[in-house]
Amino acid sequence: MDPDYSAQDIARCDLCKVAIVQSYCDFCHVNLCKPCIGEHISDDYSKHTIVPFQQRRSTPIYPKCETHPNKTCKFQCKDCNILLCSYCLASKQHNKDHELSKLEEIFNQKKDQIQKDREELKLQLLPAYEDIATELENKIASLDVDYNKLTTELSKHREELHREIDIAINQREREIDENKVNHLSILKKHLEEIKQLQSLMQETIHSLNEKEDSNEVTLALKTKSSAILNTIKTGLEKLGSVTCLNEEEIWTSGRTAGDIKFFNTEGVLQKTIKTKSGEYPVDIVVYSDGALVYSDWKKRTGYKLKNDQTEEIIRLQGWRPSQLCVTSSGDLLVTMITRTNTFKNPEDLTLVSDAPTQERINCADTNQEWI
């Protein structure tokens, strides 16, 4: 045959290497032409299973019986969870009242489930993660351009402002560079996690392909279905915070709008809450009783929301609330930030509780206070 068309060559007999294959041994997994069948089965006719080539790998290969090595097991005892051959069933050693299952039926059910798992991974989960990976790669590719625009705009302002404003702009440039590094690190970490999941899915698909092509009953019995992953589309341009009280309630907030969204585990939006200032919340947490707390940077206030009623629980003077944490005792920790004339960022931590007093801790070596 022309070597240019070798990829299209039809299957040949594995024994003579010349004749076109017509049959297949489902026990030995060997292609056979008609003249070579006799030679192939001459060693032991009973163990070979010759089928038309188009029906190859259709005959289950049953496991050998541990008690009767010359017999194969075609049944499984549901009560004892052991494999049985016909001799086992006929003997008095096994309880006649036990419920039996045919291995052929179990084998076919497992084959169907393997095919469903492979198709689900290949057609649903893998494409979804490929889209996520592409989106992350595009963001990384455009990251330099976006941040260069910010730096250029700030440079133009520098030329028009006085010395003090110039210092502030330089500080802002450093913050942008730090944000860029942090942003890039987060995106790359996310991309790496996605690619690792993609690799695991590819390995699983490869393994399922091998199991689907195999007619080994024991291999099929050991197969377990894949876990189903769920991705929730929040609709937030930049996801900032995620918190939950239990597995049924998920609260999210972004970095571009004053929306706090509540989802169930199916990813269905239950409600959307607007912050008092209309700006995005710096952080959100949930109390053990289900009450939601968020820090409003613009209004210098912390709010508590329960049963659709909003309560102001902390208001700061000269400080702005930042990160939040609910302690095991039910108290609320609030990080407070301010800027000095030299644009440093001393931070305080306030402990808010039902008690009439609050606790403040001052860290002298870092110019910080903890309340």
Rank of each mutant, 00 (worst) to 15 (best):
T265E: 13
I50C: 02
Q93P: 02
I337M: 12
K261N: 10
Q358D: 10
I313K: 02
C33E: 07
Q358W: 10
K233L: 06
D348S: 13
G330E: 01
P63T: 00
S295F: 04
R174N: 14
I371E: 04
A19Q: 14
K224A: 11
E279G: 07
H40A: 03
A227N: 12
S42R: 09
L333H: 03
Y287G: 04
P52K: 12
G235W: 00
T340N: 11
L32Q: 04
K195C: 02
D117P: 00
E279A: 12
I337H: 09
S295L: 07
Q115F: 10
K47I: 11
K111C: 02
W251N: 01
V334T: 03
I361N: 12
I61V: 09
A168S: 14
F262D: 02
Q323C: 11
I176E: 04
L324K: 05
K17D: 06
R339M: 13
R172H: 09
V282G: 08
T342N: 10
L245A: 08
I232D: 03
V30T: 15
H29V: 07
L83C: 08
L239F: 02
C363S: 11
Y129Q: 05
I114Q: 02
S295W: 05
E237D: 11
E247P: 00
P3N: 13
G290C: 03
K188P: 02
N31T: 07
D146P: 00
C13G: 06
K222Y: 06
E153I: 11
L305I: 15
V181N: 15
F107D: 00
E266M: 09
